[in-house]
Amino acid sequence: MRPFHYERVSEPVKAIAIRAVAPNGRYLAGGTDLLTLMKDGVECPDHLIDINDLPFRHIELDSDELRIGALARLSDVADAELVRREYPLLTQSIEAAASAQVRNAASIGGNLLQRTRCPYFRSETVVPCNKRTPGSGCSAIRGDQRTLAVVGTSAVCSAAHPSDLAVALVALDAHVRLEGAGSTRTVALRQFYQTPDTAPDQDTILRPGELIVEIVVPRLDPRTVGHYAKVRDRASFSFALVSAAVVLRRDGDQMRNVRIALGGVAPMPWRLPAVERALEGTGLDLRGVAGALETILADARPLPGNQFKVSLARAVVHRALQLAAGAA
């Protein structure tokens, strides 16, 4: 690890001001991703601004929305009584992520900003990787393709986003509140991530020095149900090969307001708007869903090593729908 200057701050404006004069600085939350990347030489910041004292740990529900501070720990959010009660999908997605030890240390904001697990991106010995060094090439395209994305990719990078929580949040139409030098903005999480076209090293639209302050999740109609289904190479403590977050409103024996986001298949949580529309009004017994499910990822461009993700995604969505609708 390269030497760096360490500083702990307790006010957002102070953090932003320090970062403004430390262009190679990084904010440090739980450190569970950043420190790993620093150990492997992927990140070499000269300044770490420890933001753990910032007042962003709240988990609050009012009549309109749930607000989760960016520094709330994954385990605190998953265990919060009001989250378990009102947004069990969030608890499911967090409990499917990492280990209990990591979840106790990892923050919500850091989870959304974690970098891809593409093994070439994280390689301790430097190998061509456009996400790590734009223009250097892509080692994965002729190498191990199992974890790569199948949709939303480009010729320069096929990395998948690894977060479980982000998939559930995108299905719930969550927003992120951001604070930069003299400005704040609210962005739909769905618009937060970017495809790797012109700047594969930029995963999100976050500007240098901008802080994630909180996540905002709209309130749900009481008839809403959801489920997070995750398939991985071992039964626990592994990143998703494919996951699906499903949210729908039960209306008699029909489903309404269906929202589906996939994980493990794209550089971002991948919504399926056409499938959602096709499922609108279909029966909760799932008898009429086969045609719609067959169109999932029909536009994907899989590689030989990850082609299995297309049919797997259809099966995972089916499973999540079954469990959400109570038809399992």
Binding site: Y6, R8, L28, G30, G31, T32, L35, T36, L48, D50, N52, S99, A100, Q101, V102, N104, A105
Partner: peptide, 11 residues
């Protein structure tokens, strides 16, 4: 419980 390898002593 946490992983002691994933946090800095100064934190």
């Amino acid at each position: 419980r946490i992983n002691a390898c994933l946090t800095l002593a100064v934190m």
